[in-house]
């Protein structure tokens, strides 16, 4: 009997996309633009103008995203024979993700009390984090339109 349920990998893929979307939304909400441009006036989106809320949501999303990345990476390593190799677009996305995790992690560390970071480093990290997410979106769009997979496996 054909299964009507969604496969686990597809569910994970959707969860990953939703989490990444949440991260992008709450990440851009760190800039004071959603109130200025009436987006926070849309019913149900008022929280996007509350900086502490979006800050916490971004952290929660980061935890979820890290969990998903760790799951996928471990699964890939365990089944590396069956999973095939990372494709070019998969490798680019993985590198960009690693950069996002690294710069995001440093920003989390920066937010602890007693951690001093020079103005130059803060600006560099902020711009790099923003640049990486923009690049990721560009590559993800390219992969989506070209139906490119992360790995060479079927």
């Amino acid at each position: 009997m054909p299964s009507r349920t969604t496969s686990p990998s597809r569910t994970l893929g959707r969860l990953y996309a939703a989490t990444f979307g949440l991260m992008a939304l709450t990440g851009f909400a760190q800039m004071p633009i959603f109130k200025r441009y009436y987006i926070a006036d849309v019913p149900g989106l008022g929280w996007l103008a509350q900086f502490y809320v979006t800050h916490v949501m971004h952290y929660l999303g980061a935890a979820l995203l890290l969990g998903l990345i760790a799951y996928a990476a471990t699964d890939f390593l365990i089944h590396r024979g069956r999973a095939g190799r990372l494709t070019v677009s998969g490798a680019i996305r993985a590198i960009l993700l690693a950069g996002l995790v690294a710069t995001g992690g440093l920003r989390v560390v920066k937010n602890f009390s007693g951690v001093y970071m020079s103005a130059g480093w803060i600006v560099f990290l902020d711009l790099l984090h923003l640049g990486l997410v923009m690049a990721y979106f560009a590559v993800a769009l390219w992969a989506l339109l070209g139906k490119k997979r992360w790995t060479s496996a079927a």
Partner: peptide, 18 residues
Amino acid sequence: KTGNRLAAAMILAPLAGA
């Protein structure tokens, strides 16, 4: 405080995922 406490979740989440 809330945000910084959640940072612990960022350490635990990858362990849980793996």
